[in-house]
Each structure stands twice: as C-alpha cells, then as structure tokens.
Design a protein around this nucleic acid. Structure first.
Length: 315
DNA sequence: AAAGTACTCAACCGCGATTGT
DNA sequence: TACAATCGCGGTTGAGTACTT
C-alpha cells in the first residue's frame, strides 16, 4: 500500500506551465492571496493543475522579486559556506539570499558550485547507518574505516572537502580561494566582492551562532544531572524538534571527526532515534570537552533564519 | 550537418511535519 | 486523541538546449 496521491493524476495537467496558466495563477494570487489552501486553489480558478504544482510554480517562479540565474560571487560564497556548515538545508540557505528560491540554490549547487569546488562528480551515496548484521564487521574494521574517508557518506565527504577541520567557515580555506580565484585578482580596493562577502558571512555566522548556542544551552541544561528527565530522557522536546533537523548534519560531522565507529550502527541495532544519537553526542562532548562541539554550535540560528525566510516569502 | 553527449533547470515525487476537525 | 488533509522540504527526473565529435 503506497501513499494516496494528493490529486488525480489522470485529470491533472503536468509538465511545463503555459503563459496563460501563469497569468491565471499570478492574477488570482495577487488579487486574493492563496487562501491558505493550495489544494483547493486550482479548482477555484479553473486550472487543471495539482495544488502542489501551483504552489511550486508561485514560489519558484511567479512571486514578486524572484531572481533567476546570475548568482553573484557573494551569493556563491554564502551558499558554499552555509552548505559546509549545515549541509543541504536549502530552504535555510535560501532564507539568507533574498529573491532566491531553495530550488534555484539547489540547482546552482548541484550543477555549478559542487563541480567547481570538488572537481568531479559525486560518488554514489553510501548508506548512512549500518545494518544490525553489519555491526560486528564494522567494529572489526573500525580502524580501517577511520582511516579511509571514502567510507563516509557522499554529503559528508563533500562537506569535509569544503570545510577546514578547525575553521568552519571555509573562506579561510584554500578551497575557498579555489572557487573564487578567477574573481579574486583585484585586491587594490577595499570594496571588492570578497570583502563584502566576508562581511555578510560574518553577519550570517553571528546570527546563526546565537540561536544555536541558545538551543544547545537549553538542551544541555535539561540533560545535566539533577534536571528532571523528560519522556525522551532529558532533552526538552520543544526545542528538540529544532535540533532534530540538525542531527543528520551532526552525524556527518561525527563521521568526519570520529570515523564510522559503532555509534551509528548500534543506534540502529538498539532501535534508537536520532534524538538518542544527539544525546549521546552531547554526552561525548561532556566527556571529551572537545572544541568540535563549540564550533558546531556555530552552525545554526533558527530564529533569525526563520525571520529571513518569512521575509523572503512575504505575500 | 548529423549524431552523440553533457548540462541546465523546471517540475515532479514522496515523506515527515503541521494543522484542522 | 485520532485521523485526515495539507504544507513544506529535499531528492530526483527528464525535456530542452548547448556543446563536442
């Protein structure tokens, strides 16, 4: 049994939008708004389109102030830096680039930036987690795994290549120079694109840092001894929903810094959740006092990200 | 000029999260 | 509280175009 489709594919038109369809959708939304129901919208205006398709068309193409193509050096810089920090959270990255859509940024990354930075097509992705049956084998090969980065997931590898191990913002990294070397020749003035890019990056970094620090602190406060355990074992559920979205990236970084130890495999063997993984990682932090975690705490600032995201989608 | 290949990007798909009843 | 409808996201696809041989 698969999931029920959101619309009847037999009666719904698919494929590229015609100018007439665009005009109909745009005129209606500009006059009446979306009405808070994309599924009903195409029926109201007589479009034989799926509601999701209407939403996508509006958000990615028809809404005002959309920019297409022609990514600036500064934008490339921000995309690469945020990707190296938070991975493929395209909507979050898009929130930092007014007028850009997540789809545009995703396409731009996949077709241009990734190739430019990494210089070759990505390898097929490796499984994120080990199966129960694989665990003992993986334990036996732990040392080998830790010394062979090709066993990491492809996104983790990409980000490892992008990221300096000590400096989470890669513009201090040679790879950053590689990306921008062709535009980086004019250093005679103080208002080069690189300078403004650096300023913007620092601003974004600060914004992101503050809230994740708050989120991390909030969770740490509830995971220390003496704090009454929540149903999930100590972490506040409300803020944890925010943190869950970070876990994939954190796991990637765990791979980067620790290799594929039994950590992930045992997580699956014990039917643990990603939240459990995260909690375990916090325990590691407490044990090791590793600077890694403070640097990772500079990765996200959900509130400011949300603000900019909402502004970007202002109707 | 034709055929083959690579690239781009709009659109689709499916899933988890959220909201409404 | 349970369920269904809808939203929003990231991954993927494929048609059209550009480039190469």
């Amino acid at each position: 049994m698969g999931r029920a489709p959101c619309c009847d594919k037999a009666t719904v038109k698919r494929g590229p939008w015609s100018p007439e369809e665009d005009a109909t959708l745009k005129a209606y939304i500009e006059k009446h708004g979306t009405g808070g129901n994309w599924i009903a919208l195409p029926h109201k205006i007589g479009l034989k389109r799926c509601g999701k398709s209407c939403r996508l068309r509006w958000l990615n193409y028809l809404r005002p102030n959309i920019k297409h193509g022609g990514f600036s050096v500064e934008e490339d810089h921000i995309i690469c830096s945020l990707y190296s920090s938070i991975g493929s959270r395209w909507s979050i990255i898009a929130a930092q680039l007014p007028g850009r859509t997540d789809n545009d940024i995703k396409n731009h990354w996949n077709t241009r930036l990734k190739k430019k930075l990494l210089g070759k097509p990505r390898e097929p992705p490796q499984p994120r987690c080990l199966s129960v049956n694989q665990v003992s084998t993986e334990v036996a090969n732990a040392m080998s795994l830790q010394t062979h980065p090709q066993t990491l997931s492809a996104p983790a590898l990409e980000r490892m290549q992008l990221r300096g191990c000590e400096d989470p913002f890669f513009y201090h990294h040679p790879l950053g120079d590689k990306l921008f070397e062709d535009q980086h020749t004019d250093t005679s003035t103080s208002t080069t694109p690189i300078d403004s890019s650096h300023r913007r990056l620092l601003q974004v970094k600060q914004e992101i840092q503050i809230l994740l620090n708050q989120t991390v602190q909030e969770n740490m406060d509830c995971s220390v001894p003496g704090c009454p355990p929540s149903d999930a074992g100590g972490l506040a559920e409300s803020s944890f929903s925010d943190c869950n979205s970070l876990v994939a990236g954190l796991s990637d970084l765990h791979e980067i810094f620790h290799g594929k130890e039994p950590f992930l495999g045992l997580q699956e063997a014990n039917q643990s959740t990603e939240s459990d993984c995260f909690k375990e990682m916090y325990r590691e932090k407490e044990r090791d006092g590793m600077s890694l975690w403070s640097s990772m705490a500079s990765s996200l600032h959900p509130d400011s990200v949300l603000q900019e995201y909402l502004l970007g989608y202002d109707l």
